[in-house]
Design a protein around this nucleic acid. Sequence first.
DNA 1: TTTACAAGACACCTTTTGGTGTCCTATAAT
DNA 2: ATTATAGGACACCAAAAGGTGTCTTGTAAA
Lengths: 129, 129
Amino acid sequence: MVIVIIISDITGNINEKVGVILTEKGQVRDVYDAVADPTRRKLLRMLADVEELPLHEITVHFQMGRTAVSKHLAILKEADLVITRKVGRETRYRLNVAPLQEIQDWVSFYEGFWKQRIVKLNLLLEEKQ
Amino acid sequence: MVIVIIISDITGNINEKVGVILTEKGQVRDVYDAVADPTRRKLLRMLADVEELPLHEITVHFQMGRTAVSKHLAILKEADLVITRKVGRETRYRLNVAPLQEIQDWVSFYEGFWKQRIVKLNLLLEEKQ
DNA sequence: TTTACAAGACACCTTTTGGTGTCCTATAAT
DNA sequence: ATTATAGGACACCAAAAGGTGTCTTGTAAA
């Protein structure tokens, strides 16, 4: 979903800037969406172990090519789940867990439901005895 | 991801049956995938409030047509997040939260990371004082 | 016993997704 | 100074996603 912002100055010159619609949270990409793909979840899991990793090292652990892995990381970055840093000729990737809190908040709403179910089940078992 | 199972009986007649590859948990569809779409999350939220709802009543609350809503519900059903029951000419949908536990387990692994960050932040603030 | 309604089953369309390969530039190693 | 490597930027492709509309069947209401 891409919008084009056109800014004109006093002289009438036009500056064209390509922007994107942002989430309320400020990310370009929905965090649920970013996490839906198993490859992306594997990437997060990898980065959870190692503090920082360059693209080519990450790529080794996947069957697909570098371009594909890079794209997945780009999506994670759009969701703010990953932070990049240029070191020499390599780009190092680092995990940023903060946006996952949104998912946890969301799922914790439903948590009440299955806890309720366990209570009901226990009551039923007591009746049987 | 669809596989075709071909079963041949003694007479040589061939029965063709279309099956699907299942998750370890037994669902046809990944729960992360099912939950990635905002429309589907809205559906779950609706069903959390009302115990049971027929398709046509659900459809009223969306801008898209019945077919589209039905498709989304089918996807939720594939992920076992929804259970259906036929009553007269209507199909009633009911929420099943159980599969969401997988997501909670997954996210709770990363929960440790941001809690850790808060601890580090507090230590930093204490030093400053 | 007609008529209206609920919803399954398709066929169809456009956009997005997840992958590929190639080219090019900046940096590091020889 | 030359060669190798890291990775960004494309162009390209097949399949899946997310919608539409239409037809048909089973059930309910008039």
